[in-house]
Design a binder for these strands. Structure first.
Length: 888
DNA sequence: TGAGGAGCTA
DNA sequence: ACGTAGCTCCTCAA
């Protein structure tokens, strides 16, 4: 035996994961998609600690495979009667295996044997190779492996502490040597494995016998000599003891198909590891892994690499020379765009993954920009988050009119519910390329030091883009989303950029007037509220309000929130019905006014120097495929109340153009039409084809009356249900919303489904298909993945089911609107009128007086024919001097 | 700084 | 526990 300075760490994966599962409350460890992670977290946490403390050269983790082991063959009752493992446990084992493998650690699974046998076999291999061996296991059977070379790491309570079991400590604790531990366990029995021993015999008695007679065979030979009741018991249970002794021997000669050298702790796959941690939402654990091992010690896989990119700083003519032969260019820049102003200095260009060129746009004159413009226009461009950059470039006269690839958009389509689509993360996930920090550009030094680094950063990003995009584009095609990507999302980029750059004009004086008005209203309501309770209180503080309502005024408790009782408008209105306390009225009025005030104050802050508000549309945020709007959000401007609608009066047509108007065009009931189309429900389709008032029509069917006999109460019930269905409404939810009994709500739903049976079939089918395929699909093939449909947790599963019901409908509506925007925008190309805003099923267009009729026609035609459904797409159009006026 | 509560839209 | 998808404001505790 040669002495080598190596150590082998062997881990019983199943037993430790099981301990972790029970040590950490499962309800506290789950991803947003419903994957339970408590066992994974606990196991990996333990693993990181032991790797840090022991720094082994060789590592393996062994798992049991099924329960068909040789032990079961010999003893049918082996491990029978065990409490069933909770369903959350098993799915975590596979993920643990994946993580362990990605860490460069050998995963051992051997059919027909238990993890312990594999550990024993590998412990023998390590011993023979001259390594120090540590066995980490939560199963006491492993104690028999302990000797001068092999130490057992046995977890104490919880998962953070390990006992180092050596022959000495085993002797001390159990009174027998490791070689006799098996005998002790056989005599005592093992409840968890359904191996009864000698009744009444514990560790102490067993140890005494074993010491007296040497070993278990010695004890059994002398069983007749043992006195008393226990002696009798032993003689009665010899067969059990012999069976136990046979079964608890760990086999150290299992053919694992690998040798000691195969257990070397390898490089792993950091890209995979990072992706797994990302998927499991283990931010802190990921940091701990890096912190403990440091940059060096985290195994650097073959796939993870900082690619050396040569970044040259050039002037524009120099750049044009370099890209003369390139057809495809990747671009990146330090573009910023805020409050209607764009800024950019460093433009990075790359045509190959290991080289990039940067130009200082601040140094480029008009003719250089013009040359750059025509050069870029003639090429296929790949950009990450192109819209922001295109907007900022425009401020310098660089007019890029769209791109052939956008890595953020592509990544979004592939995984539409991710939190962010940072290039560094996508590059790492998809190609294993790590974008390094720092580094400086070389070449013609036209930048100062700070910009040198900026230049290098963007050069490196540009260089990474081509490979990243190729990988993403392939995945997009494999998922049959080429159409959504290339014919919808990418062409939409310049359309949205133009809308954002245009912004919408606001009446600033009117806005200030509203602020004053709403402020006064809020102050009045606040005073009245204070008067009603005799003192002041912060009306914006739910905590203080709870003190007033439930302690001071002793009102009945409302629905619970995480931190107390709700004070939301619905609850306050109910309290008012019960108590008629005037404070509640004034509080509600105060809430309304302050909300409106905040809205107008917020809007005023975002008015740019050109007197217009430039929102930013997010194209990679909504998991269903909708756009979202921010800074400011123009998709939630009040409309339901009269005061709210007044805010819409300050959004006005271009004041620079005499008699210009805003035109608004919206789809009527697009989601219900999509529901009719997708379900193929003949009755619903007929209703739309006949152009009936939908809710009256449905009401007449549900209540079995003539269409003219549907009263407003019936109509609103049916309306609530129709919309509710699209969201996965339950009978309970419907009853709450309509303030009717659950029975009546249930009845209503049954009537509905009886008349519109295909709708029910369709809704059921959507969920079932999503469960089978893992994702839902819109009419254009846009996907949304819903792994939580398989969650063990009811609440998460239900949420996923509702999302599955809604995603194809909301998403298809988004598809249709996006197509319509492209077509409208295309046809407005020759006109002066331009699209300004989109609010999901509505677009707002700034129209020149002479183009009003033409634009109305274009919008009606293109929105109406954007996609052919089984039912017509109805479009309502209106014009006016303000958004408010246009809608009337 | 971030979580929680509240409220606005389609 | 009980209707989808968003964004922004305020308060309060860390």
């Amino acid at each position: 035996m040669t002495q080598v300075n190596e150590s082998l760490l062997l881990i019983d994966g199943h037993s430790l994961a099981y301990r972790a599962f029970h040590a950490l409350p499962v309800e506290n460890f789950a991803t947003t998609t419903g994957q339970s992670t408590n066992a994974i977290y606990g196991f990996i946490s333990m693993l990181i600690n032991v790797l840090r403390d022991e720094s082994p050269s060789h590592v393996a983790v062994a798992f049991d495979l099924g329960r068909e082991t040789f032990r079961l063959e010999e003893y049918a009752e082996y491990k029978a009667g065990r409490a069933k493992t909770p369903p959350e446990f098993h799915p975590q084992i596979d993920l643990i295996k994946d993580i362990v493998a990605a860490m460069g650690i050998t995963v051992v699974v051997k059919e027909g044997f238990e993890a312990d046998d594999a550990l024993a076999t590998m412990a023998r291999m390590g011993t023979e190779a001259g390594a120090r061996v540590e066995v980490m296991s939560g199963d006491k059977d492993s104690f028999q492996l302990s000797n001068e070379i092999v130490t057992i790491l046995y977890p104490k309570r919880g998962v953070s502490d390990l006992n180092r079991m050596t022959p000495e400590s085993i002797e001390e604790k159990y009174g027998v040597s490791p070689s006799n531990y098996r005998g002790l366990a056989a005599l005592v029995g093992e409840k968890a494995d359904n191996l009864p021993g000698v009744p009444g015999v514990g560790d102490k008695t067993a140890a005494k016998w074993l010491t007296t007679y040497g070993d278990l065979p010695g004890v059994l030979e002398n069983a007749g000599a043992i006195k008393g009741k226990v002696g009798e018991k032993l003689r009665d249970h010899v067969a059990d003891v012999e069976r136990n002794f046979k079964l608890n021997r760990l086999l150290d000669d299992v053919d694992l198909g690998l040798g000691y050298a195969d257990l070397k702790w390898g490089d792993g796959d950091p890209a995979e590891l990072s992706s797994l941690f990302d998927q499991l939402e283990f931010q802190a654990l990921g940091k701990r892994l890096s912190a403990i091992f440091g940059e060096e010690a985290v195994p650097e896989g073959a796939d993870r690499r900082v690619r050396e990119v040569s970044v040259d700083a050039l002037d524009v003519p120099g750049l044009l020379g370099k890209i003369a032969d390139a057809d495809v260019l990747a671009l990146d820049s330090d573009a910023r765009y805020e409050l209607g102003r764009g800024d950019v200095r460093v433009l990075a260009v790359s045509a190959t993954p290991d080289e990039a060129w940067v130009v200082d746009l601040a140094e480029a004159g008009p003719s250089a920009i013009a040359d750059l413009n025509s050069a870029l226009r003639a090429r296929t461009l790949i950009v990450h988050s192109a819209k922001t950059q295109i907007k900022a470039w425009r401020s310098l006269g660089l007019e890029v009119d769209g791109v052939a690839g956008d890595t953020a958009l592509a990544a979004y389509l592939l995984v539409p519910d991710q939190r962010s689509y940072e290039l560094s993360q996508i590059a790492l996930d998809r190609t294993g390329v790590e974008l390094s920090e720092g580094g400086e550009a070389s070449g013609q030094l036209t930048f100062d030091l700070e910009s040198e680094q900026t230049a290098h950063t963007h050069g490196q990003r540009a260089a990474a883009l081509l490979d990243v995009h190729a990988v993403l584009a392939k995945a997009i095609d494999e998922a049959d989303m080429g159409l959504v990507y290339r014919d919808i999302e990418l062409p939409l980029v310049p359309v949205l950029a133009r809308m954002e750059l245009a912004g919408i004009a606001v009446d600033e004086a009117g806005l200030s007037g509203l602020i004053d008005e709403f402020t006064k209203q809020a102050e009045t309501s606040a005073e009245l509220a204070y008067e009603a309770i005799g003192h002041e209180v912060n009306l914006g503080s739910p905590k203080q309000l709870q003190a007033v309502l439930f302690e001071e005024l002793d009102m009945p408790k409302t629905k619970r929130t995480k931190t107390g009782y709700t004070t939301d408008a619905e609850a306050l209105a109910e309290l008012f019905i019960k108590t008629e306390h005037p404070f509640l009225q004034h509080l509600l009025a105060y809430r309304d006014s302050t909300k409106l005030k905040q809205t107008v104050v917020g809007l005023l802050k975002t008015v740019a120097e050109d007197g217009r508000i430039h929102t930013t549309y997010q194209q990679t945020v909504a998991a269903t495929g909708r756009l979202s709007s921010l800074d400011p959000n123009l998709q939630n401007i009040p409309v339901r109340t009269e005061s709210g609608r007044r805010i819409r009066e300050i959004f006005i047509a271009d004041p620079q153009v005499e008699d210009s108007r805003l035109l608004t065009a919206d789809y009527s009931q697009i989601e219900m039409r999509i529901m009719a189309h997708l379900s193929g429900d003949a009755a619903l389709i007929q209703a739309f084809k006949d152009g009936e008032d939908l809710h009256s029509y449905v009401g007449s069917k549900v209540f079995g009356v003539g269409i003219d006999e549907v009263d407003s109460a019936m109509r609103s019930k049916v309306k609530a249900m129709s919309y509710g269905l699209v969201y996965g409404l339950s009978a309970y939810g419907l009853s709450r919303q309509l303030a009717i009994g659950v029975d009546e709500a249930k009845n209503l739903m049954e009537q509905y489904f009886e008349r519109f049976g295909a709708v029910k079939d369709y809704l059921d089918e959507i969920v079932e298909q999503a469960r089978a395929k893992g994702y839902t699909e819109t009419i254009m093939g846009r996907r949304r993945y819903l792994p939580a449909l398989h969650s063990d947790r009811r609440q998460l599963r239900d949420m996923a089911e509702r999302a599955a019901l809604n995603a194809p409908i909301q998403g298809s509506a988004a598809d249709i609107m996006k197509i319509a925007m492209l077509r409208v925008s295309h046809r407005l190309g020759d006109l002066k009128s331009t699209v300004l805003l989109q609010v999901h099923d509505e677009i707002i267009v700034d129209v020149r007086p002479e183009e009003t009729e033409a634009v109305a026609k274009i919008v009606t035609e293109e929105m109406g024919s954007a996609y052919e459904l089984e039912v017509p797409l109805d479009v309502n159009v209106g014009t006016g001097i303000s958004w408010h006026a246009a809608a009337h």
